[in-house]
Design a protein around this nucleic acid. Structure first.
Lengths: 361, 361
DNA sequence: ACCAGTCAGTTAATCGATCTACTAAATTGA
DNA sequence: TCAATTTAGTAGATCGATTAACTGACTGGT
């Protein structure tokens, strides 16, 4: 028998309590986990001793090791974690994942991903049953790290890897919806605002090389979808100007100003996210351009702010909450041995006040 | 030596890799954690074998058991977790905590707390180094559970327990600021909108008993602060009507309508949170009452929406982000053996367009 | 009186890693 | 050349729990 001096100053464990009560370790364990297996009196006695000794209850890490399950779902975010709480789309998604976890009584572990840190290491250390990768560039080291760990994993938006669970939408189709809408309105000169296409700090027009090399699949697809629709649309000589920026309204505004300074001046500004489009709206206001009279602005995502903006934003609605729900459910199902499904959710164009026909002359 | 048939179909562990390579378990461990302790060739050989065997790397749970640290901070929320993502104040707070955790490369574990579940059990099972309790009623079972676990714990807002780390503001003082502001404007008839004072589903006026019995210290204090200021202010015969509601704009609107139906009709509606005050603003608009002409409305918290509302809300500003930062820092310091500080952050009245002098007659 | 069946516990194996203390071989220094 | 030091790796204890298999003592039906 492995015994440790009860008052020896070292940590209190099951064994300490067992020694104190004069029963075996197993019985103390049962007192906590299977009350029906011992007499109520003895149980009380044991719990009492535990209280007196200041025993904090069975150590969760040890239990987890033995049981092989932690009841925790992990989540890794592209951007620094704090960004997750400032981006409305992310908040909606996260909230829905959280709701699912909660209903299964599982914890949700948000993993840090500061720009400089060892994410692969973090990923290896996380005590979780399954893992959600939210919108990661395709070549990110985290992707390999999580794959190597052979944990049930759900990828959301990107990357999309054969044989792994996935939740997303048809972003290229979304892009086409926007493009078709804009050509239908007769716009010849169009500006596109896109978030970063590569994990660097580049700011400026999008080159064909950057687009081709992009590791952010979803934006690449939205971009291509828009461009295809524009070029194949009823309007003959479409000119397209582009600006690549960080995904915030502030940067969107700056990018929009650049686009509006180009010749010929675009009559439509298409944001690849609502955040950027909201910035474009600000830029228009700052210049005294009326929307949609002087300028058409469109977004992508349909975050709550899109409907509330002035004018309300024409955008592609993707079901952010459903996405979180689907991801959450998959995460939990995978742990139970469920299949690695791919869920493509549906999207649609929402026409609101920010888009209109091009003004003659 | 403890060996397991390498190809036996069972799990791959350090030992499997060790057997495969013909070295000891310790050496394989070193290959992962202390590369400098073995020759590069051997290391490569080991890592190679691991790859071939599909070894996912050292099991985090086992490592945690051995090392005694998990690098994770836990957080328990009053309301169901999903609420945390829908309440702006909570999102701001959470984001700041997340930022702190991230800078220390720690994970943030959001614990579920569905209304019916065994929160104490959840709390006992969480593999964390420290714990944050956010705005829990004083008598909640979770409070004892976490105390029993003897984990470094930070309480935010409530409860406030002697000897434990705490982050909060002087809510009573905040209440007085509002009360003084309103009496200074000459209001005689005041309605107060408060979130739940007890963990039940009650809806309606606040009785003295409910106030006295309240386990939500912060709202009780805000309430008392307001009332004290009103009763001791320059206005002689103040009448106070009250409504208790869930903390959402929707419920705030419903409560406001009730208050506006009472006789004498209040000329000022004081929300104990911005969420409720925002609801009051809606109610006023629905009735065609001009704010602040016909009705003064005030809030508490200063969430971003407060400044953006129409008219912008007079409210008590509390530093939500700072609160999260302070909590995060404390959480991390406690793990390092830091002292259990109490941090009282400062608040101030922010006078905006939603409050004005009572209209004569 | 005998066997089967419950009760209330115990024993000992096990989960998968890490770390201290140790050893054997290689290198260094005078 | 021989003791001292460094290098590369090993043995075995240990972290703190859970649980399958087992043991005696009772109970009760026939």
């Amino acid at each position: 028998m492995r015994t440790r001096g009860a008052g020896g100053g070292s940590r209190v464990t099951l064994q300490t309590v067992a020694d104190m009560t004069g029963v075996s370790r197993a019985t103390v364990s049962n007192a906590y986990n299977r009350p029906e297996r011992l007499s109520p009196e003895l149980r009380e006695q044991i719990l009492d001793a535990a209280r007196r000794l200041g025993y904090p209850g069975p150590d969760p890490a040890a239990r987890r090791l033995r049981l092989g399950r932690s009841g925790v779902v992990g989540l890794l975010f592209t951007e620094p974690l704090s960004y997750a709480f400032s981006d409305p789309a992310a908040v909606l998604f996260l909230g829905a994942v959280a709701r699912e976890c909660e209903s299964a009584n599982a914890g949700l572990l948000l993993l840090p991903s500061p720009p400089d840190a060892d994410i692969a290491g973090t990923l290896r250390q996380a005590v979780v049953d399954s893992m959600c990768i939210y919108s990661m560039p395709e070549d990110h080291e985290a992707v390999n790290a999580v794959l190597e760990r052979q944990l049930p994993t759900v990828f959301v938006d990107q990357p999309r890897i054969r044989g792994t669970a996935f939740v997303g939408v048809d972003d290229r189709h979304g892009g086409r919806l926007i493009g078709e809408h804009v050509t239908a309105l007769g716009h010849h000169h169009v500006g596109i605002l896109t978030p970063r296409l590569l994990p660097d700090d580049y700011v400026g027009p999008v080159s064909d090389e950057r687009l081709a090399a992009s590791t952010f699949r979803i934006f690449k697809e939205r971009f291509s979808g828009i461009r295809d629709a524009l070029l194949q649309g009823p309007v003959p000589d479409v000119s397209i100007t582009t600006q690549e920026r960080g995904n915030t309204p502030e940067e969107g505004e700056a990018g929009a100003h650049m686009l509006l300074d180009s010749e010929p001046r675009p009559t439509a500004l298409l944001g690849l996210t609502d955040q950027l489009a909201l910035g474009a709206l600000r830029a228009a206001r700052a210049r005294g351009l009326s929307v949609p009279g002087d300028l058409t602005v469109t977004g992508f995502d349909d975050i709550p702010e899109a409907a509330a903006s002035d004018p309300p934003l024409t955008t592609v609605q993707q079901p952010l909450v459903e996405k979180g729900t689907a991801a959450g459910r998959l995460l939990l199902d995978l742990v139970q041995g469920g299949p690695a499904k791919e869920e493509m959710l549906s999207i649609r164009l929402v026409t609101r006040g920010s888009s209109g026909p091009v003004r003659d002359g």
